[in-house]
Amino acid sequence: MTLRACLLRIACCCVPPLLGGCVNATVDHMVFNSPVDGIGDASVIILGRRHASDYETEPDFIRCVGNHIAARDKSIRIVDEFEFINAMYPWFEPRTAPLQPADLERLLEHAPVAEKLAAMDPEYLIWIDGSTVRTDSAGSMTCGIGPGGAGCFGFGTWSNDATYEAAIWNFGQRAEVGRINATAIGQSYMPAVVLPIPIIAPVQGTACDSIGDQLLEFLSQHY
């Protein structure tokens, strides 16, 4: 097993205030078994895990990662998540989706499932698990209407944490061949002197770009 740790640090608060808040991101990239053959015209399926009771991996995050990869390497064919789930219903719903690569054998025992997967010709199935949550907030703001008009005054701040993990399954080998962990922590601000001015930290977008870049590097090496 080889281990490559890629630490991507994004400088905090080095942008003009109106562009965004502060974001720090870290990515760990682990490759267990790097295949040597290209995958040619085969496809890549990217799905979000939604088994937890307290959160779900956001569909827009999965779409963001897929779009990030497809925009930078048009030779990589990404299967749309919802089109895949609808076509494979109910085999990739949260209660029936495979939790381990070996579970794919169980699915292939069903002829309709095997036929649909054969038509899609997937080489990699990538599961992304995680979410972006607000962790804390501080400050206060008051708004009112007076003879001179309406306005607000105050200052607020809050933090968002994004934590995602991508598990890369090689469909043909029925084995996990890589894993990527990405975290992004951001501080957003809302100053208000008459008008509130949101200064939003692009936490989820930064995590999307971080995972997307690492997946793109992995996939591009094997096309």
Rank of each mutant, 00 (worst) to 15 (best):
G151C: 03
G149W: 04
C14F: 00
G48L: 07
P35Y: 00
I185G: 02
A119F: 08
Q187L: 14
G20C: 01
D213T: 14
G149I: 08
A87W: 02
C13G: 11
S131E: 11
C208E: 04
H29T: 04
V65L: 03
L195G: 05
V177A: 11
I85V: 12
E58H: 02
P90V: 00
H110K: 09
L125Y: 00
F32S: 08
E81P: 00
V23I: 12
C152P: 00
A102S: 05
G144E: 06
Q100V: 05
I199N: 04
H29S: 09
R95G: 02
T57E: 09
I85T: 11
P147M: 08
I200S: 08
Y189V: 08
C143D: 07
E58C: 01
N160A: 15
I185M: 03
G156Y: 00
R77I: 10
E217C: 11
E81V: 03
T132K: 11
P122W: 02
G149L: 08
A111I: 11
R174M: 10
S140C: 04
P198D: 11
L3H: 04
N86H: 05
R77C: 05
L108W: 12
V27W: 02
P112K: 13
E109A: 14
D161Y: 10
S188C: 08
T2E: 06
G205V: 01
T157H: 08
T135E: 12
C64S: 14
F82E: 01
F92Y: 04
L7Y: 03
Q173R: 06
L3A: 09
T183R: 15
Y89V: 08
A207G: 12
P98Q: 09
T2N: 09
I200Q: 12
I128F: 07
M120L: 15
P196T: 06
L216E: 14
F32Y: 09
V23N: 11
A11G: 00
I197C: 09
E58I: 02
L47V: 10
I45K: 05
K116C: 01
P94M: 10
T142L: 07
D103A: 14
R50N: 07
I197F: 14
F153K: 05
M141I: 15
P202C: 15
C208N: 09
G148N: 15
L104G: 07
E165Y: 02
G40A: 05
Q204T: 13
C152S: 01
M1W: 05
V44Y: 02
P94Y: 06
A71M: 03
C64R: 06
R63N: 07
E115P: 00
P94E: 10
E123T: 08
I69E: 04
L3K: 04
D136K: 14
